[in-house]
């Protein structure tokens, strides 16, 4: 077979390969979703959490390379104490070039019952390898979070909560409140690992915003116990699974509940 014939044959083979990739792109989602436990973008989680889901606290900080504050826009405030609940949202925003990726954000709908005091939402994006875990920026330019204030009667205790131990290795294994999800990395089903590699690492890739026209996020304060916000992503790697941090600044009544629903909203 001469050179010209080999070149022609190679073009044909590569053409078949590209056709296969395009077919995978078009039909692959439906095939993969049936055969794995990994939830595809667009899948809803709809779960109700009680105050037993607050597994950490009382404490004044949330995990990062150096402890981050919880009060939106503030550094760690030692005079404040919070109770923390981590929720695996089983979704992730997708960023990048909309011409080659189906970009979108995650909409989180919340419904509080009998919330007392302030509840603040932050997010973390789990990553693989040595990429630092992502989180929303706490202070500085385009810092963002979502805060809800309730006026119900004070609770007396958060019996499930113990303070999260500070990690000098900047690696945290946190338990999530929704034990139903199987962790695809072979860890125990109820924990996730946050790993931070250097000061400030991981901040700025994820944003919390009530309005998709402001994708870089903002601090939102509301007294509406029912509402929604979005988690958007910028940069190359927002992570492959979102963990929602719900922090409340005082013990909640026994009648407290929080319903969280998530869905993936395509924008590209």
């Amino acid at each position: 077979m001469d050179l010209r014939a080999r070149v022609g044959l190679s073009f044909v083979l590569i053409g078949f390969f590209l056709g296969g990739m395009i077919a995978l792109d078009t039909f692959g989602e439906s095939v993969v979703a049936e055969s794995t436990l990994i939830t595809e973008p667009g899948t809803l989680i709809d779960q109700v959490f009680t105050k037993a889901g607050f597994l950490y606290g009382p404490q004044s900080w949330r995990p990062s390379y150096d402890p981050l504050g919880i009060d939106p826009g503030c550094e760690v405030l030692d005079n404040e104490t919070w109770y923390l609940m981590f929720i695996d949202l089983n979704a992730t925003p997708i960023s990048g070039n909309p011409n080659v990726r189906r970009v979108g954000s995650v909409r989180i709908t919340y419904n509080f019952t009998d919330l007392n005091g302030r509840a603040v939402f932050h997010v973390y994006g789990l990553t693989t390898g040595t990429t630092p875990t992502r989180t929303n920026r706490q202070v500085g330019y385009s810092h963002n979070a979502f805060e809800v204030t309730g006026t119900d009667t004070t609770g007396f205790s958060m019996p499930a909560a113990t303070p999260l131990a500070f990690s000098s290795s900047h690696l945290y294994r946190v338990a999530v409140a929704n034990n139903q999800l199987e962790d695809y990395r072979g860890m125990t089903a109820t924990t996730r690992i946050f790993s931070f590699t250097q000061p400030g690492s991981g901040q700025g890739a994820l944003h919390i915003t009530p309005d998709l026209s402001k994708p870089r996020g903002m601090v939102t304060e509301t007294s509406e116990l029912n509402g929604a916000f979005y988690v958007t992503a910028t940069g190359n790697d927002p992570g492959n699974d979102l963990i929602l941090l719900v922090a409340v600044d005082r013990p909640q009544p026994d009648s407290f509940s929080l319903r969280i629903r998530t869905e993936f909203v395509r924008s590209g």
């Binding site: 590569i14 390969f17 590209l18 990739m21 395009i22 077919a23 995978l24 792109d25 078009t26 692959g28 989602e29 993969v32 979703a33 794995t36 990994i38 939830t39 595809e40 973008p41 992730t92 997708i94 011409n99 080659v100 990726r101 189906r102 693989t128 390898g129 695809y184 990395r185 492959n240």
Partner: peptide, 24 residues
């Protein structure tokens, strides 16, 4: 490798057609 290291396969498949063409 990304799939082996834990990225859900479906995230890889999204856009693989266009990625193949641009790589080509």
């Amino acid at each position: 490798l990304q799939t082996f290291l834990g990225i859900p396969a479906v995230f890889i498949l999204i856009g693989i057609g266009t990625a193949s063409i641009t790589h080509f």
